[in-house]
């Protein structure tokens, strides 16, 4: 029947609001003010100011992703081991914070970390040295880990609960100890979840401009901040688009890896 016709609204919408806008980013990124083709906007990434922002963003997002992974994996394993009746509630507890506005949550960390903030108040009452991490890269990493941790926990958890316990038991029966079982059975089986989690943490962390603005003061500039400024303040869309294209290369690289390792999309968290 006319099922082809049914797909028209969706195809139209996707073309107009997904494909064409992306093409426009490429158009602006590859032309100058007069509309002539140029690679200057892409090459601009090599200027000290921009390459520093990109490098800083890569560094902080990799650190955050690694920390998220090491926090999330044990957590996902513990959650998997719990009785199924409690499960959905416990998972909800980890999603619930996302219902508080993300800007406010990040800003609350500012209150907690400030020089005269809550944490330092407690520390000084205990006669401990004060924490000085607000407006430093460490505060940004903390904000990234805080905001994106659930995106790491959920995909890993989703994969872990699907592992047939008999496979694990079989390994134990055949004489593997718990470390061997983990390394040879559980970990390899959870790779799709890990990859999906890494993507879901790395991409938003790499491209954020909000967390760095709120927790980094104006001292730490990430590539996201540079792009945002080009669009909302400086108004140089060509340069902003050029830098976005560079950013997209990282994302595409990440997407290809996750597409190769997770063909069935079984690790999709949401």
């Amino acid at each position: 029947m006319n099922k082809k016709l049914l797909s028209a609204p969706f195809l139209f919408w996707s073309a107009l609001f997904i494909i064409i806008p992306l093409c426009m980013v490429f158009y602006y990124g590859l032309t100058d003010q007069t509309g002539a083709f140029t690679l200057e906007n892409i090459k601009a990434i090599a200027t000290p100011e921009h390459s520093k922002a990109l490098w800083e963003a890569i560094k902080l997002s990799v650190i955050s992703t690694v920390i998220c992974f090491f926090l999330a994996y044990p957590l996902a394993m513990i959650l998997t081991g719990m009785s199924t009746s409690k499960n959905s509630l416990i998972v909800l507890i980890f999603i619930l914070p996302m219902w508080m506005n993300f800007l406010l949550r990040t800003m609350a960390w500012q209150t907690l970390l400030e020089k005269t903030g809550v944490i330092n108040g407690i520390l000084s009452a205990l006669h401990l040295p004060a924490l000085k991490i607000i407006n430093t890269p460490s505060a940004i990493v903390l904000g990234m880990v805080y905001n994106f941790l659930p995106f790491m926990v959920l995909p890993i958890y989703n994969v872990l609960v699907k592992i047939d316990p008999n496979v694990v038991n079989a390994a134990r029966d055949l004489g593997a100890n718990s470390v061997q079982t983990f390394l040879k059975i559980t970990l390899p089986l959870s790779v799709p979840g890990i990859i999906s989690g890494i993507t879901m943490v790395f991409v938003p962390a790499l491209t954020t401009f909000v967390i760095s603005k709120i927790l980094g003061g104006s001292k730490v500039l990430l590539i996201g901040n540079v792009i945002e400024q080009e669009f909302t303040q400086t108004g140089n869309w060509h340069l902003g688009s050029g830098l976005s294209i560079v950013l997209m290369l990282f994302i595409i690289f990440n997407m290809v890896i996750s597409a190769v390792t997770d063909k069935d999309g079984e690790a999709n968290a949401l």
């Binding site: 064409i20 980013v25 401009f209 945002e228 869309w237 950013l247 994302i251």
Partner: peptide
């Protein structure tokens, strides 16, 4: 895709 890229692409559109 990064949200910032989606955002600016729609803005340009």
């Amino acid at each position: 895709n990064a949200e910032i890229v989606t955002g600016i692409s729609l803005m340009l559109l």
